[in-house]
Every structure is written in C-alpha cells, then in structure tokens.
Design a protein around this nucleic acid. Sequence first.
DNA 1: CCAAAAGTGTTTCTATTACACCCATGT
DNA 2: ACATGGGTGTAATAGAAACACTTTTGG
Lengths: 229, 229
Amino acid sequence: MDIDKYTSHDKILVAVDCIIFGFDGHELKALLIKRAFEPEKGKWSLMGGFVSQDESTDEAAGRVLLQLTGMNNVYMEQLYCFSDVNRDAAGRVISVAYFALINIADYSEQLQLEHEAKWFPLAQVPALIFDHKEMVALAKERLQQKVANHPIGFELLPGKFTLPQLQNLYEAIYEEPLDKRNFTRKVLSLGILNKLDEKEKESSRKGAFYYVFDKGKYSKLHREGVKFI
Amino acid sequence: MDIDKYTSHDKILVAVDCIIFGFDGHELKALLIKRAFEPEKGKWSLMGGFVSQDESTDEAAGRVLLQLTGMNNVYMEQLYCFSDVNRDAAGRVISVAYFALINIADYSEQLQLEHEAKWFPLAQVPALIFDHKEMVALAKERLQQKVANHPIGFELLPGKFTLPQLQNLYEAIYEEPLDKRNFTRKVLSLGILNKLDEKEKESSRKGAFYYVFDKGKYSKLHREGVKFI
DNA sequence: CCAAAAGTGTTTCTATTACACCCATGT
DNA sequence: ACATGGGTGTAATAGAAACACTTTTGG
C-alpha cells in the first residue's frame, strides 16, 4: 500500500453516529446519550465515535453500537453522510450516520446507567447537538420506507411475537392506525411467519398466539419487490 | 471553531466519486474517464476528487461534476459512503459516491476529449478501478427506485421531449418494455406535463408532440407518495 | 400506396380498503 | 356475567395489466 500517492490532499476527521431504534410495545423510541466529552458535554446526543485509519465506517458503527449496547449482530444500515463544513462546532468532522434496530428488551439497564443513555419516544426527542436531530428525522423516514418492502421490523421485536404486537409496531413506525383484519391477512399471506402453539397471556385474557419469523421461507421470495405492509 | 478538541483521532482522506448518467434516446449510459494519475493511471474510472477541508461532500461532488462537464445546476444526489479499508490500493480513502443526471446532448465534445471521457451503455461498462463497478451498480438500482416515485427522469431529457422519448427513457432505466397506452395514460394523468403545439419530426413521418415538465404543477402534488411509473 | 411510428379505449384482473361480530378467558 | 382484547370474511373500489386498430405523412 503506497500511502504517499495522495499526500497533497486534506485529511479530515470522520465519525459515525448511530440512530438506535427500539420498540417498547407501544412507541418507537431512539436511544440517546448524554455526551461525555467536550464540546457540548452533557447535552443529549446520538452515540457516535471517530473512524480510525484501520476500520471501515461499518466497522466503526458496529464498534460504537457494541460499546453502548453490548450487542453484536444487530441490524444496522448506513443512512447518509453528513458533511457540512460547520456541522460540528469544534472542528471539521464528516459524519456517516447509521441506524440500528434492536430488541429493546435485550438492552441492559446496566449499560444504560454507565453511558447516561435514555430511550426517547420519537415524538419527544429533546434538543440534540449539531445536526443530530436531522439525522434522527432522516432515519425515521428511511425506516418507514424500508419496512414497507423489507422484513426488518422483526428486528425490533423479540424472537417470538404476536400479531397484535407486530401491528402495534407497524402503527408506531407509520404513525397511523392500521386495520386489524387487513393487516393480519396481508402479513400471513406472505407465508414468512410460523405460528407457535404457545400464547402470550400478559396483555389479554384470551391470549394471542406467538409467531416467529421464518428467514428461510423469506429467502425463497425475491429479495426485492416484496411489499410488506 | 476550536479544531484542537479532537486531535487524538485519525484523519482520513475523503473523496467523492460521481456516477454520471445520460440518455441518448435509446440506452442509459454512464460517463467514465481514463484516470489521469497514479495509481491505476489510464484505467477506466468514475470521475472523482478529494474533499478539501473547507467544503462539504456535496460541494466537492458539484465541483468535480463542473470540472468534467462544465455544467452547474445538475441534478445530483448522494448515493452511499464506501469505506472499506482497502478499497483504494494506494492508501486509505473513504469515498462518498454521488450520482448525477444530465441531458447527454448538453455535454460538450470538447470536454470529453480533454478528459478522455466516454459514455458507456450500462450493460457495457468496462472493468473499473477499485470499487467503482459496485458504485455504478448501486447507482443504477437507486435510480430505478427513485424514478418510480420522483419526477427526476426529466433531468435526462431535453427541456422538451415527446412521450415516446419519455417511454424509451423509462424502458431503458427499468430494462423492460412498457405498454404504450398504459404508460401514456399514467404519465398524462399526473397532470405535470404541458403539451406543446410543436412536433418532433426526426424519428417518424407522423411526428410526435413535444411536452414540457411543469415543475409548478408538480410542486402542488404531495412531495412524496406520488407514484410515477 | 406503403412503411413506420404516433395516438387512442375497453375489459380483466388484482390489490386495497372499508367494515362488525363472535370468541376465549380471568376476574 | 362481564370486560377485555383476539380472531375472522365479504363486498366495494381503485389501480394495474393486457390487448389491436386507426392515423399521419414522407418517400
């Protein structure tokens, strides 16, 4: 590797910022932290970190996510590169934003305390540093588009979930109510869910059957062009 | 601006690369250049350039595009940030890819010669340096998705165009034939085209009426949620 | 008069929407 | 027995897809 070829050009600080989505059964939430260092120390912020010379932005985002959540193998997707010259008050930093979908129940209280992290319903996100609010807004938009065509909503739910839970999730993401019968029909017609014999009995007397997402069945569908909800 | 706050972190070379799409009436093409400097000098490549300390990636991409095409005010959109550690054989470079849509007829032969640039039908793109082939493929995918919901196809056509030309364009982008009657009905039903009295007489005896895209009428539609073709 | 491309409607099918009642169960 | 949320079908509508003939005109 001949690093000398490009020496006449500017080098720039590159960061990643993660919009971490979770779903508590009712609302779609984002995990924010109290920024631990200057500038803007103590203000609400996305979790982020600098990209080092020997890692890709994907790797950096994975690292940052692991740091905050202790989780690996999380669904994560590059969102957009934010590069306004003055986006960071303390200097020139280009940030590549990622969004992640995690099962909120798996998130450790312990780590939450350590990082002064907190889940905020999307409608109640506080003032954020720099352009992080813009990042959150864009992530929400992308998530809305993406779940319509890709089976990624399941990433926000436990391994087994009920149809009412799944519907709540989609309603939370789309921010609009869906018809129960139409929803059920459409979801089941895709043939990618397996019904279990077991019922969830917390939230109703009758209980609702659990389902699991069958990745194998999904893979057999065309990768693109599948309308979800 | 306090640039000293982040000094302990790595700085990285950041570049932009542009996938420039054009349409010649029959095929969708990409503008490629023979790379003018080492490494990989003389090989086919996307047009690119380094991002300097005092410009955003949008600005850098605009600059690069202006350099190659002489054009300003071109439709351009950020595609993706490519950051594999070894993507550039000569050193660590993160590249933010952009795609642009230009009216191929406006592109100066002169500049084409100066930069050793050439239009390649998408199906016949030669071997490209680094990860540029991946960039082109992703850009094509994004273009296909985007034109389905946004009125950006017009950017690839002259100010006035005929319905058969517009249909050819969509067929070229989607790489599949469309039904003429269904296409015409749908396009006209959007109410965003104005028919001129003038006919294009080159490509047929009968001649086809010219239309122009009416941006004002489009703006009155909802920004999102409009299905195009 | 003929070749070549432009222009134009109707029918079928599929997908989406709207809508209301019974079921199972814990208290 | 009743309150609570789970589960289910049908009819109406809108959108997409399939399909073929007539028109214009330069040569």
